[in-house]
Write a protein that binds this DNA or RNA. Structure first.
Lengths: 141, 141
DNA sequence: GGCAAATAATAAGCTGGCTAAGAATATTGT
DNA sequence: ACAATATTCTTAGCCAGCTTATTATTTGCC
């Protein structure tokens, strides 16, 4: 039951975080989750979808859908790159690059709001504990 | 960027937790999330959907869908209760009650796995930090 | 060379979650 | 008593995310 409290807390915390991020991103026409694709491309433009999926730890079909939507709103384009005719690499458009500062600011604002008031020691302990819990779960799978 | 690491960690941790829970629950024919409805009903059978939504902190249309699916697989039934003809209260079926020990065991197994190896002090600190972060986000909204 | 096996992306269809809009019913105010 | 408002639920349609199955292409092996 102690652990159940933690589970409930984790779920609610995650949802609250997503909600706040969703609100912040919606002002730039994005849904929560899409910023991850953009951030990956800002770090390295022209990645294949398989590479994006691996980086973001989501499945290829999910990337496929998200990229299509980002392409529809004009933030990325898909081009089949040199060499492999199967792979459709994803490239930022001018607008996709231009939106970067606003989106990064929005993400940072939510992060700052979330972790406000924690001391350096508390933050370090939180990171350590979360990494431990993550490994407990991920190592199994 | 320190905060961004935390954000990424939080998202991945939450996803890992959901995945493990999903695997555990699928062996009983459930999807992750549905166990929350059942647990609420095990604690208090016959709640209205509005009440369930408030308790679980999800929106009424989400409850509506989930209850319909749980009804389809024969774990709950809906009846319009006394007094208010709008409200359709949700009741566990015999099977909905019978599945309880197995589902609770599955939830606890994931929780134990997740939080294994944390000392009491670490767990307490984790709870405190997560509650703080949750309030930082929820108070805003 | 040619054929089988691996890989890249997509399609179909499911879930939880959301918002907006609608249909019933209750409640409240006058 | 009746009109206006509020509440409860459902429907429609969107998103992220998933699995399974297809289609193209590439690679690897004989």
């Amino acid at each position: 039951m102690m652990e159940d409290d933690l589970s409930f807390l984790l779920a609610n915390l995650c949802k609250a975080y997503r909600n706040q991020l969703d609100i912040a991103l919606s002002q730039h026409g994005l849904y929560v989750g899409q910023e991850m694709i953009l951030r990956a491309l800002w770090a390295e433009d022209g990645q294949s979808q398989a590479r994006l999926a691996a980086r973001l730890r989501i499945e290829p079909p999910t990337v496929s859908k998200m990229v299509r939507r980002l392409a529809r709103i004009g933030l990325v384009t898909q081009r089949t790159a040199t060499g492999d005719a199967r792979a459709r690499h994803v490239w930022l458009t001018e607008r996709g690059r231009a939106i970067r500062p606003a989106v990064e600011a929005a993400c940072q604002a939510v992060a700052r709001q979330a972790f406000a008031g924690l001391t350096a020691a508390e933050t370090a302990a939180l990171v350590a504990a979360m990494q431990r819990v993550y490994r407990n779960l991920a190592d199994q799978a």
